[in-house]
Design a protein around this nucleic acid. Structure first.
Lengths: 156, 156
DNA sequence: TGAATTTCGTTAACGTGTTAAGTATACTTC
DNA sequence: GAAGTATACTTAACACGTTAACGAAATTCA
């Protein structure tokens, strides 16, 4: 199917399978399927892990920044932070200069959890890179970045 | 903000932003953001629309096939079919030769709904194709297909 | 035939995605 | 400095994603 030339220049309706959002979803699902068991072993969801990773990289930051870095909507982040705080994986403090803001950081337990999961996560990632090829993976990254940058800067 | 790398609180992992599942998610989100308003105007979610499209293309099929074509898990499809049946957009009948199977098809109303939405959906799609470029879009399709094919045929 | 197994669809439980509305704090402006 | 506006986060409501368990019909096979 890859290089299939279309004999028909203008089909009435694009083939159902040729739906970009669906292709993106399938690719993402194929990748996530590799990570989910690892996270599950530690009682974490993919999104909770995203928050932990963001905190490990960007240190104590407020919830707004954290939402941007982990690409979560505010309501989702609220629920996730409630869970992580309950599990004592994160800590929260009100920003002294702006009491609306809540500054989030990893607790000692959160940092330990990160250290424990990160290496295995990296190994899985390396496995994917090896299977698909470093160059093609980079090409995919570049196209994806171009794609959403284009769409976001078009504003319909 | 984005570039402000502080001294690591925790030893470094691959740059957080270089997470393929997240890049795929962002690209998908950028695309879906264009379609959601249209669907919303018709009271449909993205997944409900996927089911309608699959039924429009593949005619009456059983729920199992429909789940595969629309890339939905069985429990999600069950809920969606309940909704669509309630709205009289689809019909269901038990398969005569296998009473476990439920054969689903679009009702007249469902077909009309499809005809009403499809052209606008195609226009939005053409708009994306024009903004990003037909050749690059094709390259993206190809890479994505290669990617999940590779991962699925590796089986970890 | 009859019991064990498999398959199809559903229900359940919990977490996230999405939109809208709400609350509290900060900012602006007169 | 009080009123109006904006911002940061939370809550609510509904739909889907994911996993597990369940009931009914089909299949296998003893």
């Amino acid at each position: 199917m890859r290089g299939a030339k279309k004999t028909n220049p203008v089909p009435a309706l694009r083939d159902f399978r040729h739906s970009l959002p669906m292709e993106l979803m399938k690719a993402r699902e194929a990748a996530m399927a590799r990570f989910r068991p690892l996270l599950r072993d530690h009682g974490l969801t993919e999104q909770q892990w995203r928050v932990i990773r963001a905190l490990a990289e960007y240190g104590p930051i407020d919830a707004g920044e954290l939402a941007k870095e982990s690409f979560l909507l505010a309501p989702s982040l609220t629920r996730i932070l409630q869970f992580l705080e309950n599990e004592k994986i994160i800590r929260r403090a009100v920003d002294a200069s702006d009491q609306r803001k809540s500054v989030v950081s990893l607790s000692a337990r959160g940092k330990a959890l990160f250290q424990q999961i990160a290496p295995a996560s990296e190994r899985l990632y390396a496995q994917i890179e090896a299977a698909f090829g470093e160059d093609r993976l980079q090409a995919l990254y570049d196209l994806l970045a171009d794609f959403y940058t284009t769409l976001e800067h078009e504003e319909a």
